[in-house]
Design a protein around this nucleic acid. Sequence first.
DNA 1: TTATATACGACAAAAATTATCGTATATAAT
DNA 2: ATTATATACGATAATTTTTGTCGTATATAA
Lengths: 132, 132
Amino acid sequence: MLNITRKVEYALIALRHMQSKNDIGLTSAKEIAAQYGIPKQLLAKTLQQMSREGIVKAVHGPTGGYKIAANLKKISLKDFFEKLEGPLGMMDCYFDSECVQISNCNIRVPIQRINNNMRDMFSQMTLQEITQ
Amino acid sequence: MLNITRKVEYALIALRHMQSKNDIGLTSAKEIAAQYGIPKQLLAKTLQQMSREGIVKAVHGPTGGYKIAANLKKISLKDFFEKLEGPLGMMDCYFDSECVQISNCNIRVPIQRINNNMRDMFSQMTLQEITQ
DNA sequence: TTATATACGACAAAAATTATCGTATATAAT
DNA sequence: ATTATATACGATAATTTTTGTCGTATATAA
């Protein structure tokens, strides 16, 4: 319960790996997959997604790869999680509001409160703190 | 990502429902299931688990049911979650230490830090705050 | 004795997650 | 030009987790 996904885990590993190179040069999905024993294709897709989100920059062709493109100090963990996995909450009703039970749900308000706490917490942590 | 389970959700609903009765009388799984549109058997199992954990007390037989047995002010949300769902962390490696990759995992330390933050947060909230 | 409630292991269904496949495109090197 | 290697990405498959059900046993009020 309350786990992050492999996708996010792989993304963090990749970012940290790239950052350890001091933003110099490119890193291929292959290199990271091999070093950390991660499925290459899945990692590649995750890097592609981060590329679309502007977190990394992709370079095609042989000798190509990825490099960090954003200022990780300016991306909160909350934003990062939501870029990769969508809305961040303990229960979907926080966003959906489509719950059939909503009329007699008796824990909606307290759940919202916890959600806000959690979102606050992850808003106050930056990607940089994880990958530095 | 970072969702709680239905089991925990149902447990919270049940506790809040029972508490709204001011700890007077018993409440059957059937009653709660009907009122909130919850699968009865699953709810029953959850109540049974809470009974084993001493959170509620069960009474057999017709006119039987459950009532709150513990002081909810003294049970943190972290303890509650862990009673129902086991160790609370964003990644299993926080507890397992059985991860094959552990030797070259580069995000273990920062992940532990986030985990600790999360556990602290839920340690500071009580069940009472949710169900009152 | 009957009806109704809890107790619980085993099993089944459904959903979400994780991983792979196939194909297309870009580009450096030969 | 051709080749080799990298990213791009939709579709699909495999796996795992979550969610729900079944069957049977036990307790107890009426």
